[in-house]
């Protein structure tokens, strides 16, 4: 007998929570980006787990699309970070106060 789906879901929930905490408490934009990746992976794990539980390939197809979107997101996001760094000499969230009131 294999591991029940609940354990995978618990791991995914904790992983998502760690990613969310990191996104909220870290100030470096790069590390915040990595925390977003952690959260995406948690959701991917959930999709694969339900794909196995329900015996439906659609969950894995969705994970495939999430991978593609994550790659595109990282490319654009890192481009934005580089262009911010060029003009501001820093990549913490505190450097991005252009829209503060």
């Amino acid at each position: 007998m294999t591991i029940t789906a609940s354990w995978y879901l618990v791991v995914a929930a904790i992983l998502f929570g760690i990613g969310a905490i990191g996104l909220l408490i870290r100030r470096s934009v790069l590390v915040m980006f990595m925390c977003v990746e952690l959260m995406l992976n948690a959701v991917n794990l959930t999709f694969v787990t339900f794909s196995r539980t329900l015996n439906d390939i659609a969950g894995q197809v969705v994970v495939f699309f999430v991978l593609v979107v994550a790659a595109a997101e990282v490319v654009v996001g890192l481009g934005i970070i580089v262009s911010i760094y060029r003009s501001r000499r820093g990549t913490t969230a505190d450097d991005l106060h252009i829209m503060h009131g």
């Binding site: 294999t2 995978y8 791991v11 992976n41 694969v48 787990t49 794909s51 196995r52 894995q60 994970v63």
Partner: peptide
């Protein structure tokens, strides 16, 4: 580690 968890659930390609 996530890839290992995928592998355990028979999502080989992913």
């Amino acid at each position: 580690g996530v890839a290992l968890l995928f592998l355990e659930q028979r999502a080989d390609f992913l």
